[in-house]
Nucleic acid binder design. Structure first.
Length: 567
RNA sequence: UGGGGUGUCGCCAAGCGGUAUGGCAACGGGUUUUGAUCCCGUCAUGCGCAGGUUCGAUCCCUGCCACCCCAGCCA
């Protein structure tokens, strides 16, 4: 792959971003020599979401572009929150997105011994000390945003004593919260991260990777940069909120005898409207049963988006369209939706599904007659298999596709008017049957036998085309129609997150009729139900003979707009 | 009366001294047995505001304003 950034741009200059330009310049000027090494460093305390996808595309994309390497490193420094379930899901999500990390999976925990030695080094150098202030006291001593902090009375403890104490802490001789190791920097710094940050704390708890080996665990700040250095990461990319940590990151790299000098760069995280991308909030939705789990199709998690039916390519395209910058913003979900439609339109086979059925009886069609029509699998492709569509006397159409009377803007079936059954004949409605409540429950039509592939003899081409499924030969399916989980643009701003929930985020259609060929597709098969939207056979709930489809996204709907304006 | 950032069309994002670029959305129109797709067209005399430097500034300087992040022994 070429490192020429003027090449390989997709729409909107996809792939080109300030970091790519920066690295290209570093290479051009010789400021950076050797391979570009990045890493994706998730903490295994939750599922990956769409924001992580941006980071994954960035880190892996940069490595690929510069012929370097990107590794996966679990940033597992806090045994309290982490779990193997997340380690597994994160790996599966990255692979599903289509990225491959170099070498084995790494864990920050595999460097605990080295990190411990670095801590000792800092202590011996008089640059770290064991503090016996309680967490509350540490907070008080830290000062405020506008007032300098106060030195801990333990700040000038003799290094030898700190070393002995730290070693004892590591052996489990101290209770949690009774002591911590702090870097000795500057309690008066305007940057609070430099006010003697805690770099090691006691956790008398088993770690998912290291078991009971350790009773002290390094903080993010102490572990991250040093792990980067150990691994030879050259460009350590993180989000904007870590900007304030960069001076600390650099301070540690400078003070410690690390084998390399990684540099931290920050970019703005991606926010999407009508949803939340905070692990804490997502976890709440899961824990309180608001959704069906981390992979509920309404969740902005990679697993949820996957189950919703989005493709890896569409998510990568989305990340390219959104770009990478340092100015935080909120992207419209319409961009995500555009990305899937754009990917699915050329690839998804077409099919018909009636979701809200209304029976149509073709009165001039013999009771037992079954005509098997063929339909193209895709309007623009002849390489996809053709479909067999049995047409019978009784078929179902959508309730919304029939009106007893309507104005000219309504291009569907109207009493006394003609419409084409998609891939079949033109029919004309003559009569309706109503129930006691006055609702139309049946429409009687006649078909024109000369209209298969032709316009009616009178030369008047019906304006509308509607989809249908044979009442006797169609199959039933459960279709779930998903909508945004929140009805407000920024749910995080609500007094309570749940206040912004969209009550109609999931609608179940139990009595749908699908064309017969669709009942036995494999899970995760994506199709377009013509005139309706893109759908996917559910990854878990769909089974041959018991079809369950999720709506990925609706088709663009110009009619809905016209209708809203009052048709 | 702390520190660090960011401000270019409704939303993202390029441009980084030579007279505003792309995507999404929106709005017109054409093709169409999906009111889909596709195609064509419209959409910032202005780049947070005010000054200054310059032949010329979104890009440089100064001063304001707005918004975001930071006071976990979370990451």
């Amino acid at each position: 792959m070429s490192a020429d950034t003027s090449q390989e741009q997709g729409p909107s200059g996809a792939g080109n971003n300030f970091l790519r330009n920066l690295i290209a310049e570093q290479i051009a000027t010789g400021e950076h020599a050797g391979p570009v090494v990045t890493r994706f460093p998730p903490e295994p305390n939750g599922y990956l979401h769409i924001g992580h996808a941006a980071s994954i595309c960035l880190n892996f994309g940069l490595a690929e572009h510069f012929n370097g390497a990107c590794r996966l490193r679990f940033d597992d420094t806090n045994p309290d929150a982490e779990d193997q379930e997340y380690i597994d899901s994160i790996q599966a999500d990255i692979q599903w997105l289509g990225f491959e990390w170099e070498g084995d999976v790494r864990y920050t925990s595999q460097y605990f011994a080295a990190l411990y030695d670095y801590a000792l080094y800092l202590i011996d150098a008089g640059l770290a000390y064991v503090d016996e202030l309680s967490p509350e006291q540490i907070r008080e001593y830290r000062g405020t945003l506008t007032e300098a902090g106060t030195n801990s009375p333990y700040r000038d403890r003799d290094p030898a004593e700190s070393r002995a104490m730290f070693e004892a802490m590591a052996c489990g001789e101290y209770a949690e919260g009774t002591a911590s190791l702090r870097a000795k920097i500057d309690m008066a710094s305007g940057n609070i991260n430099l006010r003697d940050p805690v770099i090691y704390r006691i956790r008398n708890k088993a770690h998912h990777q290291t078991g009971d080996t350790w009773c002290v665990y390094p903080s993010y700040d102490f572990a991250h940069g040093q792990s980067d250095a150990i691994e030879g990461v050259t460009h350590s990319i993180c989000t904007l909120e870590f900007e304030d940590h960069r001076p600390l990151y650099n301070w540690l790299i400078e003070q410690l005898p690390v084998p390399a000098q990684p540099v931290q760069y920050e970019f703005a995280r991606v926010n999407l409207n009508y949803t939340v991308t905070s692990k804490r909030k997502l976890r709440r939705l899961v824990d309180e049963g608001i959704v069906d789990g981390w992979d509920d199709p309404r969740m902005p998690t990679i697993a949820g988006i996957r189950r919703r039916g989005y493709t890896p390519a569409s998510i990568r395209a989305f990340c390219d369209m959104v770009g990478v910058s340092r100015s935080g913003g909120t992207v419209d979900t319409a961009v995500l939706e555009h990305a899937v439609r754009d990917d699915l339109n050329p690839s998804a086979p077409r099919a018909m599904c009636v979701m809200d059925p209304l029976k149509v009886v073709i009165t001039n069609w013999d009771e037992d007659r079954v005509e098997t029509l063929t339909a193209s699998g895709h309007p623009d492709r002849d390489d996809l298999p053709e479909r067999k569509l049995p047409l019978t006397r009784e078929v179902y159409i959508e309730k919304a596709d029939f009106r007893e009377a309507a104005n000219k803007k309504y291009k569907r079936l109207v009493l006394g008017k003609k419409v084409r059954l998609r891939n079949a004949y033109v029919i004309e409605a003559h009569d309706v049957v109503k129930n006691a409540a006055g609702e139309v429950v049946e429409v009687h039509c006649t078909y024109d036998p000369d209209t298969l592939g032709d316009n009616p003899a009178d030369g008047v081409k019906p304006k509308g085309v509607i989809h249908w499924v044979s009442a006797s030969h169609g199959k039933q399916a459960l279709v779930r129609v998903y909508d945004r989980l929140f009805s407000v643009e920024n749910p995080a701003r609500e007094a309570d997150l749940l206040d912004g929930l969209n009550p109609l985020s999931l609608e179940m259609y139990a009595g749908c009729w699908i064309e017969p060929g669709l009942a036995d597709v494999a899970p995760e098969t994506r199709v377009q139900f013509e005139r309706t939207g893109y759908f996917v056979a559910d990854r878990y709930d769909h089974a041959p003979g018991a079809p369950v489809f999720n709506r990925v996204v609706a088709l663009r709907d110009t009619w809905a707009k016209i209708e809203q304006r009052g048709a």
